[in-house]
């Protein structure tokens, strides 16, 4: 909910993040930048999963489209940064609109399978269209503009983009449209009966989610100076789903927290054991069995008990 208190808390979070480069080394600057990019990706995904109840298995497609478009427009075509970055996001939105148009015609598992199929198609194009994407060798040497090609500056650029996008998403989910989207999730038929064009509502959610995923993808390209076909592979779609579930789909910030936890776990576990996938798997099992509402769900419960 948009309350004064929540606004203040988000403001504090923003300021806390803004202080990271001032108080820490380069390592944390990199890690937090990466977390912010994936937090945005997860927030965009949760518009579908958490608010729309739409289980997309192919959300990586829009991340990858944004990432590749940004790389190609800035590097191969040499567009100025703002045009290239903007066009990459626009292209993600258009792709999401086209793909979403077909996907929202289906429901439940059929919807999920179609999103997966389209995402694999995007992957196949990235893999096969070697002349443009450089195939599975990866697109490297992205022409990142000089003014942001510095870890701390890029950190702040990412932070500002994240803050703007998160604020927009927050306004969206708390708007009349957002409430209607939740209504379609809660009861598809009832929403239709009262005159809601459910498909259109879902399509808008699909396009919005795809657009913000495209922003995250474009940021990812700028961050790494590179983009790889693995970014379009279905495991990337699974990863963003895991982030959302881990953090909690029932909460606005849950997926962002999930992204942070997953990345931190991933990095720290890899240092401790080569069996990190097993440990990660066990943690996920535990979350799914014992905290189905995710970590933010746990926090919420604890908060209620406290009162």
């Amino acid at each position: 909910m948009i309350t004064q208190r929540n606004m203040i808390l988000l403001g504090i979070a923003f300021v806390a993040l803004a202080l990271v480069p001032a108080v820490s080394g380069l390592f944390l600057v990199y890690l937090v930048t990466e977390i912010m990019i994936f937090a945005l990706f997860a927030l965009s995904f949760n518009l579908l999963l958490g608010y729309g109840g739409l289980i997309s298995f192919g959300h990586a497609a829009y991340f990858a489209i944004g990432a590749y478009a940004c790389a190609v427009l800035l590097t191969t075509l040499g567009w100025p940064f703002l045009f290239g970055f903007g066009a990459a996001i626009l292209l993600s939105a258009v792709s999401a609109a086209v793909i979403g148009y077909f996907c929202v015609k289906l429901t439940e598992i059929y919807f999920s399978m179609l999103t997966l199929a389209f995402a694999q198609l995007v992957w196949a194009i990235a893999f096969k269209w070697v002349a443009v994407t450089n195939g599975d060798t990866g697109f490297t040497g992205v022409a990142v503009p000089g003014w942001m090609d510095e870890p701390v500056r890029f950190f702040y650029f990412t932070l500002i983009v994240l803050a703007v996008c998160a604020y927009m998403l927050w306004r969206i989910v708390n708007s009349a449209y957002g409430m209607t989207l939740v209504a379609t999730r809660e009861n598809y038929n009832r929403a239709e009966f009262i005159g809601v064009n459910v498909r259109r509502i879902q399509l808008v959610a699909f396009v919005l989610a795809g657009t913000f995923a495209g922003v995250a993808g474009a940021l990812f390209t700028l961050f790494n100076h590179a983009v790889f076909v693995e970014n379009a592979w279905w495991t990337q779609s699974a990863e963003v789903m895991i982030m959302s579930i881990l953090g909690g789909v029932g909460s606005f910030v849950g997926p962002a927290v999930g992204a942070a936890i997953l990345l931190i776990l991933d990095r720290s576990l890899a240092e401790i054991t080569v069996y990190w996938p097993t440990v990660l798997g066990i943690i996920l099992l535990a979350v799914l069995f014992f905290f189905p509402e995710g970590l933010m769900g746990v926090a919420k419960k604890a908060g209620r008990k406290g009162k």
Partner: peptide
Amino acid sequence: MITKKRLMAVAALTATTAIPTFA
């Protein structure tokens, strides 16, 4: 909603990563 406890959790998380094993 963001409760204080949640914020604490986030803070704790940030704290754990803020103590990297600097070589």
